[in-house]
């Protein structure tokens, strides 16, 4: 079943195309990471899905509800953490939660949500006085109220410290286990890669590729990566490795070499080529190509 679907979705502001013919589908109970540099159109796309922005063309549905004509039904099923939001002036964190709990007709206690995001002790403080990271946690708690079928998080890692980012990844994992469909947009590749089962790459308003992280990596020119650790003389090792066919790039850092290859390389061949009386291989390990490389391959310097 498809939870989110867009078809030729387009949004133009005063002649500038911000979202350009985007067609994507997000299956139920998946975590879909929407990658793209700032200004790629991610937020606009998510706002269209929430029915807050009217598309100039195309259509979008969430659980079968048209975001243009049935936006209330959409928002009843979606918990959202918007980008660049501000908290309600003069209200405490607890009052923020009370509002959402009432709107959603939920029976839960505000404290349970606040404790989940680590704000239990700050419940009675005015949210305006929270740090940016705490405000981000508060908005996350608000988005989770009522166990929505779909969660839409726009740049959820922004403002979060490493602890906060860990907490968010844990919550995303728990919500996915619960059965929620989660759409996460971010320009922070590492975070998206860690939480997503599927990834879409958005650049200049266009969805330029999508698939599982592994599928996307396999589309690199040199999708096979290895980390080689040697006892000494990495420069000489570098020169010897160049004789192996299919190796397209070798990066050296101290006694560590990162190898990129167009086809898989046998470990035996590497050992045979590198080792002699002076040079010993400490380890030879296949690694994943970083998502960042993939991202850069798509969007170049814009990232």
């Amino acid at each position: 079943m498809t939870a989110i679907r867009t078809s030729n979705l387009t949004k133009r502001y005063e002649g500038v195309t911000v979202v350009d013919n985007v067609s994507l589908s997000v299956k139920e109970n998946t975590v879909y990471g929407l990658l793209g540099p700032n200004g790629a159109g991610k937020s606009t796309l998510l706002n269209i899905l929430l029915g807050l922005v009217q598309p100039s063309g195309g259509e979008a549905t969430v659980h079968g509800f048209d975001t243009r004509t049935e936006s209330l039904s959409v928002r009843e099923r979606v918990g959202a953490l918007p980008d660049r939001f501000d908290v309600f002036p003069r209200l405490t964190g607890k009052r923020h939660l009370e509002y959402v709990i009432d709107v959603r007709g939920d029976e839960s206690e505000p404290s349970s949500h606040l404790e989940r995001v680590g704000l239990g002790d700050a419940a009675d403080d005015v949210a305006e006085n929270y740090s940016r990271g705490m405000q981000q946690r508060l908005a996350l708690a608000m988005a989770l109220v009522g166990e929505p079928e779909v969660l839409i998080f726009d740049e959820p890692f922004s403002g979060l410290d490493p602890d906060g980012a860990r907490m968010l990844r844990k919550i995303i994992s728990e919500e996915a286990d619960r059965g929620a469909t989660i759409l996460v947009s971010s320009h922070l590749l590492d975070h998206v890669e860690r939480v997503s089962t599927h990834v879409g790459v958005l650049s200049e308003g266009r969805l330029i590729d999508e698939g599982t992280p592994d599928e996307l990596r396999s589309r690199l020119d040199s999708p096979h990566r290895y980390e080689l650790r040697v006892s000494s003389n990495a420069g000489a090792v570098h020169d010897r490795l160049r004789s192996i066919a299919n190796i397209s790039r070798i990066d050296v850092s101290g006694n560590e070499l990162t190898i990129a290859a167009t086809e898989p390389i046998e470990a035996e061949l590497v050992f045979k080529t590198v080792e002699d009386d002076d040079i010993r291989i400490d380890s030879f390990t296949p690694i994943q190509p970083p998502m960042e490389e993939l991202f850069n391959a798509y969007v170049g310097d814009n990232s």
């Binding site: 959202a80 918007p82 939001f85 501000d86 309600f88 002036p89 709107v103």
Partner: peptide, 9 residues
């Protein structure tokens, strides 16, 4: 702050 209201039903 309007966004926190707007995303509600």
């Amino acid at each position: 702050s309007f966004k926190l209201t707007a995303v509600q039903p």
